[in-house]
């Protein structure tokens, strides 16, 4: 489908919000909590903020919640009953205010969840999501979308991409998919014909800092490099980078039993934890933090492109912003590209 370009007035965004609510959509948008921007269910347009570079957490929770009860069971006299997730119980979600580096991440995440086994729960959740992307007019030191094939006005992954035409300006709306058209049909009058607009003029300039194919090639012979230890000495081994990342998909399964009933829960997990690879025998193939850090980079920049034909990093910079030790992934990727060993 060719993108349909329309114009929506700045003041009309609120009307669009209301129209979506009237159509029983659950709207999840960026909101402020404890000084951090997170995606939250928004009941009023006023709860949504537009003053942010990137949200602290990615939007992956809409299809891959941090804690998901994948089944519940109970035992009684007649036997055992097991209940899974009913797709009817999953709400229709409109994700509002997603940056292009997050929108594209949804595709990378899908590649993992559909690699060999098709993850029904993930796919069902995603099928109910419409993505309203918003291009970037601001960036910070952590952003590097352009080094991994993206850009601040990238349409990939969005159903509609909005680009504000100058500070306080109206918005260009690129309607990219069927789901996007459906949103337009709920408030047709708000979407005017767009004249000739040079969208690029209004996007922030994010310089390319490294070449991801070069990094990928370098990694094929980099496994034993001393660089990993050098980079990761300050890494504390937590899960912050993985949990805020739009493409990190690792999970753990936990059973919670309470007498005759209980549930099986899928929880986020991270390769940064030492426990992640600990065997029952006590042996741990990734014994030290440098091996875990290596796994993180290898997975995203070597294994994923090899096996899934997508990179596992969108350049959103969230991991670096969230890292308690200021492990800056961009810096580390540049030094991998430049390393001579």
């Amino acid at each position: 489908m060719n993108s349909d370009r329309r114009l929506i007035r700045k003041d009309s965004l609120e009307k669009l919000f209301k129209a979506l609510k009237q159509n029983n959509k659950t709207i999840i948008g960026p909101a402020l909590q404890n000084g951090k921007i997170s995606y939250k269910i928004s009941n009023n347009y006023s709860e949504i903020t537009s003053d942010y570079i990137q949200t602290t957490q990615s939007s992956k929770e809409i299809a891959f919640p941090r804690t998901e009860k994948i089944l519940a069971y109970s035992k009684n006299a007649e036997g055992m009953s097991v209940k899974g997730i009913d797709i009817k119980d999953i709400p229709e979600i409109v994700l509002w205010g997603v940056r292009p580096c997050d929108a594209i991440g949804i595709g990378e995440l899908s590649a993992i969840f559909n690699w060999d086994y098709k993850d029904e729960i993930f796919n069902n959740r995603l099928s109910k999501v419409t993505v309203l992307g918003f291009s970037c007019s601001k960036a910070d030191e952590y952003c590097f979308c352009t080094s991994v094939g993206g850009n601040p006005g990238n349409t990939e992954g969005s159903d509609i991409l909005f680009t504000q035409l100058g500070e306080n300006g109206d918005y260009l709306a690129e309607i990219l998919t069927e789901k996007g058209s459906l949103i337009v049909s709920m408030a047709e009058a708000l979407f005017e014909r767009a004249g000739k607009v040079e969208k690029e003029k209004f996007l922030v300039d994010v310089p390319v800092r490294f070449n991801h194919e070069d990094v990928r090639n370098k990694l094929t012979t980099f496994f034993e490099s001393g660089e990993w230890v050098q980079q990761s000495l300050k890494c504390l081994g937590c899960g912050a980078c993985a949990y805020v990342c739009p493409t990190c998909a690792c999970f753990d399964i936990q059973d919670e039993a309470h007498g005759k009933s209980g549930s099986r829960v899928r929880c986020w997990d991270s390769c940064g934890f030492s426990l992640f690879t600990l065997h029952t025998s006590g042996h741990n193939p990734r014994e030290v933090q440098s091996q875990r850090w290596r796994q993180r980079i290898m997975h995203k920049f070597s294994y994923m492109p090899d096996r899934l034909s997508v990179f596992g990093c969108t350049g959103c910079g969230r991991c670096s912003r969230a890292c308690p030790a200021d492990m800056n992934i961009l810096e580390h990727l540049i030094s991998i590209q430049e390393a001579t060993v």
Binding site: C238, A240, Y243, C267
Partner: peptide, 18 residues
């Protein structure tokens, strides 16, 4: 909001338990 990333634990000098 806590998503159990354990960054607090990792950054705490007293939480050194293996």
């Amino acid at each position: 909001p806590c998503f159990k990333c354990y960054a607090c634990r990792a950054a705490c000098p007293m939480c050194y338990c293996h």
